[in-house]
Design a protein around this nucleic acid. Structure first.
Lengths: 164, 164
DNA sequence: TATTGTTATACTCTATAACTATA
DNA sequence: TATAGTTATAGAGTATAACAATA
């Protein structure tokens, strides 16, 4: 168990990491704020899903999810299909334009991070990712979905954000 | 240098850490939102300072700092003294009531983190603090260093022109 | 009656720009 | 003219509550 001073420092770092997030937000494409980018990213990683599932992954209220999704859908980046199994639900799916947008997002964030973290080793970045993932999990975050981040690109037919 | 997939994952974690921050925000005392808490914390940690210095530590615009400070001052948690060396400046100082509020803040955040991170070792927390601190340092003065974006792949996008 | 999703409303945080007071 | 700080305005993100459609 850590000490009080450490917890206070962690709280400070959590508060201050907003500056990094804002910096990332400044290089987003036009009409694609952070909320939209998160929607596209999660759909790209986890595939088609319902609103409620997306809200869970975003860890925000469904009303917030609805707004972000409406924004993204209005720009043609996703489509909302009726769920044959439950007419109340809507299945979200990336469009080809959405895949392009997602690729542009990936290119920009990758470029920014590669520049800012030029002196970080692969292991440094991996450690930070692992600890942040664990932090979210410790806060009762249901988002720890089986994300096959490692390298399972066995097939290219599904929506993978066109990396490489 | 890390790889693209790693950078994408880090971007996702940065986006998602907002859920943790919101969870922390929910246990703040009445009339003390996150912005106010950050002001009190930084004054408690670094001692009396001017607005411009506080804005730098907060990593937000001075106008934002001014609003937070006004909120905190209106509740009697800090005082704004004239700077004898520069009459444009104001020296910020915690009041006894501010110190009490700061202690309450510390108690609540420590309690929450101690509960959420019950299975974290002292070293785990230290590693996360170190890496987040380094992350912020690597982004440094992100506000004054606009990033040059790579050229879009094929289509002509409507990006902000030149920006110079 | 419960659940899925949308919409209305309000609040927090932030940046830009215009403004004042002083250097 | 330049700087420290304030205020007005606008935009993004979020949560709560009321609502509609379906289970």
């Amino acid at each position: 168990m850590a000490e009080r001073a450490q917890f206070e420092e962690l709280a400070r770092q959590l508060s201050a990491v907003g500056a990094v997030k804002r910096d990332m937000g400044r290089i987003l494409p036009p009409d694609c704020p952070a909320g939209s980018a998160a929607v596209l990213t999660l759909l790209g990683r986890h595939g088609d899903m319902r609103m409620s599932k997306l809200a869970e992954l975003l860890a925000v209220d469904m009303s917030v999810t609805s707004r972000h999704v409406a924004h993204v859908a209005a720009r043609g980046w996703i489509e909302r299909h009726p769920d044959p199994a439950d007419k109340r639900s809507r299945i979200l799916r990336l469009t080809p334009a959405g895949l392009e947008q997602l690729d542009e997002l990936s290119r920009r964030t990758t470029h920014l991070l590669a520049e800012r973290l030029a002196d970080w080793t692969d292991e440094d970045v991996g450690d930070l990712i692992r600890l942040m993932t664990r932090l979210r999990a410790s806060f009762g975050d249901c988002r720890s979905a089986p994300l096959r981040l490692p390298e399972p690109v066995s097939e290219e037919t599904t929506r993978t954000p066109a990396s490489t």
